[in-house]
């Protein structure tokens, strides 16, 4: 026979009362962490590299510099065409060395479906237009509204040119001015694929 001691009283569970202050505390912590994380991701965003998908962009072309009569377009709409995306500015001295080269290449390759898009970076519109008229350019040009495109492409300055193939993959990034030889090598390669 064994003596057992039984207790009727179950161990008392201590329940913490529901507190709105705790909910607010956690919401605040999560919100702050989320925003800090978002900021960190943006800060560490790297420029799109060769072989990666080119970030999509929307453009609102300058009057008289539209693409196939479209006043607005996007990279997605240009899918199926090789795209030469050139960042420039009227205040940029080095851009002056390549503008004519780009125009000549546009005249040479446009009938084969190549799209040239000039994006005026941090430029004022009257100066951009004066620059385009000075060089008699005819290929599509647009301002970088909100500097969205240059931010997505993480450009380091101007001029900078991205060669994007028919599938939207970046084939080459040129920091600094392009030259005729480069264009005559890269564009036929993109057309051949």
């Amino acid at each position: 026979m064994t003596d057992t001691i039984q207790t009727d009283a179950a161990p008392e569970k201590t329940r913490r009362p529901f507190r709105w202050s705790m909910v607010a505390l956690w919401v605040a912590v999560i919100a702050i962490l989320a925003v800090l994380g978002w900021g960190l991701v943006n800060t560490n965003a790297t420029r799109p590299e060769v072989g990666q998908n080119a970030p999509n962009f929307n453009v609102e072309f300058f009057d008289g510099y539209e693409w196939e009569t479209r006043s607005v377009s996007s990279l997605a709409e240009m899918r199926g065409h090789p795209v030469v995306l050139n960042f420039w500015a009227s205040w940029c001295v080095e851009c002056r060395y390549e503008t004519d080269v780009l125009e000549q290449a546009w005249l040479k390759y446009r009938d084969q479906g190549v799209v040239f898009v000039g994006v005026a970076y941090a430029d004022v519109e009257p100066k951009s237009i004066a620059y385009m008229k000075e060089f008699n350019v005819t290929f599509p040009h647009a301002p970088d509204l909100g500097t969205d495109i240059s931010q997505d492409y993480e450009i380091t300055g101007v001029p900078e040119t991205f060669f994007i193939d028919k599938d939207g993959l970046i084939r080459h990034v040129q920091i600094g001015a392009v030259n005729q030889q480069m264009l005559d090598t890269l564009i036929p390669q993109m057309l051949a694929d």
Binding site: S21, A24, L25, A28, V29, A31, I32, V35, G39
Partner: peptide
């Protein structure tokens, strides 16, 4: 969010922690 809501949340959080 970054310039207005976040700082207010931060201050509220600090006050809450301080009161606790």
């Amino acid at each position: 969010i970054i310039l207005w809501i976040l700082p207010v949340l931060g201050v509220l959080l600090a006050l809450l922690l301080f009161s606790r």
